[in-house]
């Protein structure tokens, strides 16, 4: 082998290595902490890559997903509020139309196998269609969005870079949005560090943890702080008689039940409950202490209510604050591009 040939060969090898390295750094990873269960989402059908995630992020923050190009997914799912609509009991969509439910957080969805307050959607890929087409939210159609995306600058090449296909299809659109939502993971709270034995809880926080274990953990089960069930927690029936899960299953035993929400990032997700009726945690504690109503299908565990005295509340708030995760709220990777 001549020197020249040898040099060429080496450059060739370096080139391969470089390509290989680039390729590896392109792939994001969904972090699964050791104390978390297995994820529910099938990543085999939608392996996460940088390009797909970034495309999903651009779509998530793009108002062209709404009929009048005014609101994006990010309008009602604000990162610094753990992707809820801070301060809004009910979100408003285009033309200030008001919905019927409180905007839920987009957080740790990979561990869920049903979505929305009533669990009507059973696959994360199908989730986005609902707010996009809902009359009170974005009121757009998927065929029209695809048409818009095709005519906008950048999108055709972004889709091509991400998926290697020349056409923009509904499947790719939904998979890209799913990738962004999958990466919205909140796993670095003080609680998580405590469980992983990297930090200590204060005496007050530990006291609150005990109160939590005594009264809350059955439904708001660790480490996701939800048991993924649909339960009636005894809210008085609202003026428009929202049947919750009953609307999905048409089973009277599901009437007035709603998904048990996670308690992670609770400090940032007020107001509370499916219709945002409680503006702060004191109101929530009041509800469980003496406000629970004997409505049909009330969760048996709440029949005797959960009396929480001022000491319980003080320590419980201290513990619940350990579920806040600022690294999630201010992760620039998830912020508007």
């Amino acid at each position: 082998m001549t020197f020249k040939k040898r040099m060429f060969f080496m450059v060739f090898i370096v080139g391969i290595l470089a390509c290989h390295k680039d390729h590896v750094s392109e792939n994001l990873e969904l972090e699964i902490p050791p104390h978390f269960p297995d994820i529910q989402y099938n990543l085999k059908d939608n392996a996460i890559t940088n390009d797909k995630f970034n495309l999903g992020k651009k779509l998530f923050y793009d108002p062209i997903l709404s009929a009048d190009n005014t609101i994006s997914c990010g309008s009602c799912h604000i990162q610094t509020s753990a992707f809820t609509h801070h301060g809004h009991s009910l979100s408003h969509g285009i033309y200030d139309r008001i919905g019927k439910r409180n905007s839920p957080p987009i957080m740790n969805l990979a561990w869920n196998n049903s979505f929305m307050w009533d669990g009507g959607i059973f696959n994360l890929d199908l989730l986005s269609i609902s707010p996009i087409t809902n009359h009170a939210e974005m009121d757009e159609t998927l065929p029209h969005i695809l048409q818009k995306l095709k005519s906008y600058p950048n999108y055709p090449s972004l889709f091509k870079n991400a998926f290697g296909q020349d056409s923009i299809t509904g499947t790719l659109f939904l998979k890209a949005l799913a990738q962004f939502m999958l990466m919205c993971t909140s796993t670095h709270s003080k609680y998580d560090s405590f469980i992983l034995k990297k930090t200590e809880l204060s005496p007050l926080e530990l006291q609150g943890y005990q109160v939590f274990k005594n009264h809350c953990n059955v439904c708001h089960r660790e480490p996701l702080f939800t048991n993924h069930e649909y339960l009636n927690n005894g809210l008085s029936i609202s003026s428009f008689n929202d049947l919750g899960r009953g609307l999905i299953t048409s089973n009277v035993n599901d009437n007035y039940t709603f998904k048990v929400p996670s308690l992670r990032n609770l400090s940032y997700t007020a107001p509370y409950m499916h219709d945002g009726r409680y503006l702060n945690l004191e109101a929530v504690f009041d509800h469980y202490s003496y406000g629970v109503q004997p409505t049909p299908n009330l969760a048996p565990i709440l029949k005797n209510r959960i009396p929480l005295d001022s000491n319980d509340r003080k320590s419980l708030i201290a513990f619940l604050n350990t579920l806040n995760d600022k690294s999630f709220l201010f992760d620039t990777k998830l912020s508007a591009p």
Partner: peptide
């Protein structure tokens, strides 16, 4: 089925967009 298998008349983002309950899959 996975959304990628829903092609043609079963495409919920296309031909079947008005033949699909998005809020109750």
């Amino acid at each position: 089925l996975d959304v990628s298998k829903r092609t043609g008349v079963l495409d919920v983002t296309g031909l079947a967009s008005d033949m699909y309950w998005s809020w109750n899959s």
